[in-house]
Amino acid sequence: MTDTAAIRPVLQIEGLKKSFGALNVTNGVSLSVNPGEIHALIGPNGAGKTTLIHQIAGLLRPDAGHILFDGRDITTTSMPQRARLGLARTFQITSIVPSLTALGNVALAVQAGADKPLGFWTPVDVDDSLNSPAQALLETVGLGARAGVIAGQLSHGEKRALEIAMALALKPRVILLDEPMAGMGHEESARLTDLLKSLKGTYAMLLVEHDMEAVFSLADCVSVLVDGHVLATGSADMVRNDPQVRAAYLGDEAF
């Protein structure tokens, strides 16, 4: 993974800008994610991480700059279209369909990529072409035994895992993970870290996370976002030892 020059990034962001009134939330951000890599995005609260993710996913339209997916400009592409191209995401605040079962949620995601996503007649709950892959994905994220539980009644950690299963069901090229470990206990975080590690190589991921232990054990590349712009990008060690980063963000935090 050292010779990145030969690999074309699957996701590339160039000079992205977004402001709300006088507040420049995203101020000329450029970064790229290579196939199979985990690129972590860290930064203090209010640095504009979630706003950046929203723009990449298509929930917000940037004021300036470009987003390239697999070399194709998707800056103005709609959110559903981006998902269909292979850009999946999870949300900082858990976002599932609470009245469906865990299996139903994942099946719904599988269905989005099916040949006929909008059938009118055949009942879904007996549709193996949706439910088998969905069940397999639940096994992958460790929710195999919880398939029949109403998603709204799952524990917090389980919901986060469910979100990842839904993202995987889209057979994405890139997954945007917005603080997947937020609100998790140590054990749950460790489990999720293992899961993400096992997915590494198959999917490219842009990971926004505060859990530094997770970030440094997962990321191939770390970018530090401060006040809407990238302060530093590099390997975990490089970033960790960058004096500017230490001053601006890490401060006295133990590591």
């Binding site: 998902a83 949300f91 609470p98 719904l108 909008l118 889209l170």
Partner: peptide
């Protein structure tokens, strides 16, 4: 009855509960 249990109905229900989620799954809500 059929429609509400078929793929279409499930997408409609999903959009009722969480429209943004449905869009990030690629559905045109």
């Amino acid at each position: 009855q059929r429609l509400s249990r078929a793929r279409f109905g499930r997408v409609l229900l999903g959009a009722r509960d969480n429209a943004v989620r449905m869009e990030t799954l690629g559905y045109d809500v």
